[in-house]
Design a protein around this nucleic acid. Structure first.
Length: 205
DNA sequence: TAAAGGATTTTCT
DNA sequence: GAAAATCCTTTAC
């Protein structure tokens, strides 16, 4: 399977987020290969998007967002978790797609070991920080191309149907009421947050 | 089964 | 000093 070219990511961010569903995230760390099929993404559009890390301009933390498309933006949150993004659009335009959940395909035993053997299968990779922990992605990978030896996004098989959720933030600080843009494939491996948003969307008709 | 609170540290005000 | 693109455990119903 081929890695997606940088040109794939040099497009409007919401389109990249939609098109990443069904693609395959691959890590090869210490010679151990893990693969997972992406089932949930989230688009962060740029400096004008208050949810985006670049909303308040360029800082040391977010400078990778301003770099070329097709690189990994890996950041640390809540004092303990890593999350991985694919940087989109040309250098100077700070936007990215957060990879929120995936379905384990290969290297599942390693994922289980990294996550702790007590976790249930359904919790292995169903969240942005869970996914990074299972795949072995850390700050070491920040700024690396997504077609490198350790970290890649492969062609996979794009999904024909997807759910697009534009929702208020759920379960985070109450003051933040700007919309988030989730893209979800039909899968049982989505995060609790997307499942909740999906439920709310259904409930509202 | 849902809701609430803690963990833990970087980042920016 | 406060908040953060989260996860996990505990507590209550």
């Amino acid at each position: 399977m081929e890695a997606l070219p940088a040109a794939f990511f040099d497009r409007p961010t919401d389109r990249v987020a939609r098109d990443l569903l069904g693609r395959v995230l691959e890590t090869t760390i210490n010679g151990i290969r893990c693969r997972a099929r992406i089932v949930e993404t989230e688009a962060y559009l740029g400096e004008h998007d208050p949810a985006c890390h670049a909303a308040r301009g360029r800082t040391r933390r977010n400078e990778v967002l301003y770099g070329p498309p097709g690189t990994a933006y890996v950041y640390f949150v809540y004092g303990m978790h890593w999350c991985v993004n694919a940087v989109t659009r040309r250098a100077g335009l700070p936007s990215a797609v957060l990879i929120r959940a995936a379905e384990p395909l290969e290297g599942v035993a390693t994922m289980r070991a990294r996550r702790g053997f007590a976790v249930r299968d359904a919790d292995l990779t169903s969240g942005p920080a869970r996914l990074c922990q299972a795949m072995g992605i850390t700050g070491r990978h920040n700024g690396l191309p997504l077609s490198g030896p350790e970290l890649r996004v492969l062609e996979g098989t794009p999904v024909s149907r997807a759910l697009v959720l534009t929702t208020p933030r759920i379960g985070v600080s109450a003051a933040a009421d700007w919309p988030l843009r989730f893209f979800v494939a039909g899968s049982s491996w989505v995060s609790a947050r997307a499942a909740n948003a999906r439920f709310l969307a259904d409930a509202q008709g």
